[in-house]
Structure formats: structure tokens, C-alpha cells
Design a binder for these strands. Structure first.
Lengths: 212, 212
DNA sequence: CAAAACAGACCGACTAGTCCGTCCGAAGGG
DNA sequence: CCCTTCGGACGGACTAGTCGGTCTGTTTTG
């Protein structure tokens, strides 16, 4: 039974406070007070408030990027790859909701060098999704009328926006939402040929109404 | 040839600065300096920096809400209503990009009363979209497997996210992007019956590749 | 006992908001 | 038509308060 380190406690409380009040709505003194620490403790673990913000960003984007690559490597076809990536990302909301909120809400305030490092990983993530779509278009599973880049951004938008409205206590689990996303996404992307593949059905919702 | 009033000049420069550096990254002094004004001029037109933020929020959400209702009233069927709303919203990016960025990036910092007023309008907008989807499900145009609420949030997310990546100087016009969104959205929502309607085709991309 | 981990008083920079003064155009009287 | 009055729009020095970060101890740990 490991104790939480001070650093972890600081990050956790900062996360909760940032999510509620925003990065600039929270002072270092508040973080220190709520985490039962001190200025000394804080600045022993972080060079600055900026670095704490960077740390939160990095933990999240690194995790998500890893999961996406894992999903890519573990799947064979564009359809299953795309669905697996979306599913893995959406599931992260249960785990990292505050991180995600901070990530999309406060990245403006990352200073030069930190900002650059995060943007690189963000780019890698985007390029991976575009690539999967292009692979699907190349092998005839996905429709080619829609440009892969825009479609990728549409999908990323659909999924990312979840941070604005998802509540853990809500009526739908995050897994259920991921399934709906995949259903919407496959319907908008698949060609008739792509639709006929066996594996597709495991990612779609059934047609009879009233399913939970 | 009307001159810009000081208030307008302040809002315009604030918008540009907020978009680039975030609400808290910009001081009142900076706004005052860049707009060629003064502290007196600023606080004569706005009760506080908060009120300026509120003003920016309100201009945008009011405009968008009006346009959406207009689109709803001018159209007859769920399909055309939904497409018209999406189109009207997406087009706003050309006009109000900085407003939108501020709207989604800085709303955390709206204080109590202001926040409440904006949220009401935001809610009305969301409910309108949900309603259109439900109407489409009721008359058999839209699939009923996907819950209207989640679908609405997926659509709103897809469209809203545009503020994160859209550049006016980019290769695609905002109208082209709106068309792509509508195409994606209709493919994911329409039933076979809904797909057969004549009017649908005007909102879809053609199947032959290479169309601009 | 040395080095790391932490506590907390303190400081300097910064910033939202104030306050008083000035300018200018309209109203109004002569 | 001119001079005076007056009120609203704006200028800008000033302030009170806040907040990130430092510095000097003290405790804990290996």
C-alpha cells in the first residue's frame, strides 16, 4: 500500500482546481493549501507553475499517444484500427477527465518551449488518424469523396468535445458513448464494399430500437 | 463612411489579443495601448474586464442562436433544417473566428451572473439541435439506434472543434468544409428511407473523386 | 551527519480598477 | 452669432491588493 507522494498530491489537487476554475483562476497558494503542502514543497517538486501545467499536459498526451499506437499495432484493418483508436481515446475520459479539460482549455498558457513539445505529440496523434483514414480509402473500405484531413479533424472534434459535456454520473457509460461514436463514424465513412465486411458488424449498433 | 467608435475598437483589439494570448495573458493596459485608448476610455465603456469578456460572448452566441432559429423556420424538413443550421453555424467562422475562440476557450472565467446568462443561450442552442434530430427520428428520416442527445453533442463537437484548426488562408473555404460536415453527418444519420428523398442529394458530395 | 525534502515568512513585480482632470460638442441665453 | 454653461467621453497618474517565486531555516531519511 504505497502512500501518495507529495508530487502526486499536488498534481491531483491542481487538476481538480484547474478543471473547476481554470489555470489562472487558481493560485499556487491555493494548491499548496488544499494539498496540505507548502510553497517550499511545491517549488521543490516543480520549477514553476508553468512546469506543473506542462507536466499535466505531458502525462495525458503521452498516455493517449501510446494507447493509439498500441491500438494501431494490435489491429490489422483500417476499420478495426480506427475503431480501436477511438475506443481507446474515449475510454480515457474515465481516467483522465480533468487532465483532458486542462489540456484543451489551458494549452494557450503553455510557454514557448513547453508548448512546442506538446504540439509535437499532438501532431503525431493527428497524423496517425489521418493515416488510418487514408489507408482505408486506399483499400476501398472508406469513401474517397471526403478529404482524409478534414474527416480526421471532424472525428477528433466529435471525440474531444466529449470533455465539455461528459459526466461520470450520467446515464450512459463511457463505453456506450464510444460505441455510438464508432457507429456514427463508420456509417459516415464506409463504402458499400466496406460495409459488407464481417468485422464491421461488431462495431455497429443493432437496428432494433430500445437497446441500452 | 462611419468611423469606428472607441468601444468597437476596444472590442476588436481585445478579440485579436485574447485569441492569441488568452484572456489572462492580456492586460487591460495592453488593450488600451493597442487600441489607442486609455484606462478612462476603457472603464467608461465597460464596467470591468469581465464585462468585456461577457460582451464578446454575448455578441457571438446571440448571433448564432438567431441564425439557427432562422434556419429552422425557413426550412420544412428535419434534413434541410439540420443541414441549414450546420451550414449557418460553420459559416460564422469566417466572420467571428476570434469571438468563437474566446467563447470556447475563456468561458471558464465568466463570473457568476454573466456565466449564467451565456449558459442559457448555449442551452437553447443545444436543445434546438436535439429537437431537430428527434423530429427526424420521429418521421423516419434519421436512424433511431443512436440517442438524439449524444448524436447532437457529436455533431456540435465536430463543428465547434473547427475553431482549433481552421485557417482562413487554408486550402478549403469554410463553405466547402460545411458541405463536408453535412455529407458526413447525413451519411451517419439517414435511414434508407431518408436517403431516398430527392432533397437529400443537394447536401451530399458526389461519388466521383476529384471534385473540388 | 550529509543531503534531500519540506515549511512558511517574505519580497518584488504586476495589474485591475480608481480618481481627478481635460477636452469637446450641444444647449441656451443675450 | 457669440459667449457661457454643462455633461458626457476620454486621458493618464496612482493605488491597493494579489500572486508567483525566493530564501532561510527545520525536519526527515538513508
Amino acid at each position: 500500500m504505497k502512500k501518495y507522494s507529495l508530487k502526486e498530491r499536488i498534481v491531483e489537487t491542481a487538476l481538480v482546481l484547474f478543471e473547476k476554475k481554470g489555470y489562472h483562476g487558481v493560485t499556487v497558494d491555493q494548491i499548496v493549501a488544499e494539498s496540505g503542502s507548502s510553497k517550499g514543497g511545491f517549488y521543490h517538486n516543480f520549477k514553476s507553475k508553468d512546469e506543473l501545467l506542462y507536466h499535466i499536459h505531458d502525462v495525458f498526451i503521452s498516455y493517449v499517444l501510446d494507447k493509439a499506437r498500441e491500438a494501431y499495432d494490435n489491429c490489422e484493418t483500417p476499420v478495426s484500427r480506427l475503431c480501436a483508436i477511438i475506443q481507446s481515446f474515449t475510454k480515457v475520459f474515465d481516467l483522465y477527465k480533468p487532465h483532458i479539460t486542462v489540456f484543451y482549455q489551458e494549452s494557450t498558457y503553455l510557454t514557448g518551449d513547453f508548448n512546442q513539445q506538446i504540439n509535437e505529440k499532438r501532431d503525431k496523434y493527428r497524423r496517425l488518424i489521418i493515416q488510418v483514414i487514408q489507408e482505408g480509402q486506399a483499400n476501398g473500405d472508406f469513401r474517397t469523396e471526403v478529404p482524409a484531413e478534414i474527416t480526421a479533424m471532424a472525428i477528433i472534434g466529435m471525440v474531444n468535445w466529449t470533455y465539455k459535456w461528459f459526466k461520470k454520473e450520467g446515464p450512459l457509460s463511457i463505453e456506450a458513448i464510444a460505441t455510438i461514436f464508432n457507429d456514427l463514424l463508420l456509417h459516415s465513412l464506409l463504402t458499400e464494399k466496406g460495409m459488407k465486411q464481417e468485422e464491421v458488424y461488431s462495431f455497429l449498433l443493432q437496428s432494433q430500437p430500445g437497446i441500452k
